[in-house]
């Protein structure tokens, strides 16, 4: 079980695509920094098929900072910094796509 973090917008970077190639069935995907644009229901993840069983998270502080709270795709779970730490603990390792 790997926690993948993505910190770039899928519109300008291949990070999310790389992540989706490498992500395994029980892995977690956490969008941070500009990665949270990938959770915008008007773009990003909506356009890309996610492997089943993957939970997609977005970091609250980054979502709020960018005014995205009302624009998020419904299958994305917003988490705070404490839950970020919990996610790292509950996965065996983390891979950062940047």
């Amino acid at each position: 079980m790997i926690l993948h973090t993505v910190n770039k917008s899928p519109l300008t970077s291949s990070c999310l695509n790389n992540c989706l190639r490498a992500i395994g069935d029980n892995d977690g995907l956490l969008l941070i920094e500009d990665g949270v644009y990938g959770a915008d229901k008007h773009q990003g993840l909506k356009l890309k098929p996610l492997p089943s069983g993957i939970t997609v998270y977005a970091l609250k502080a980054d979502v709020e900072a960018r005014g995205l709270m009302g624009r998020l795709s419904e299958d994305v779970r917003v988490i705070d910094d404490q839950e970020f730490v919990d996610l790292v603990v509950s996965h065996n390792a983390s891979q950062s796509w940047y």
Binding site: N7, E33, A61, D81, Q82, F84, V85, V88
Partner: peptide, 24 residues
């Protein structure tokens, strides 16, 4: 990431502080 050029140093700070506060 360089401070003031990317969020890297700042996000890492929040993560580190939170991890410590959670007892890690």
């Amino acid at each position: 990431g360089a401070p003031y050029s990317s969020q890297s140093v700042s996000t890492a700070y929040r993560f580190t502080k939170t991890a410590i506060e959670k007892g890690h």
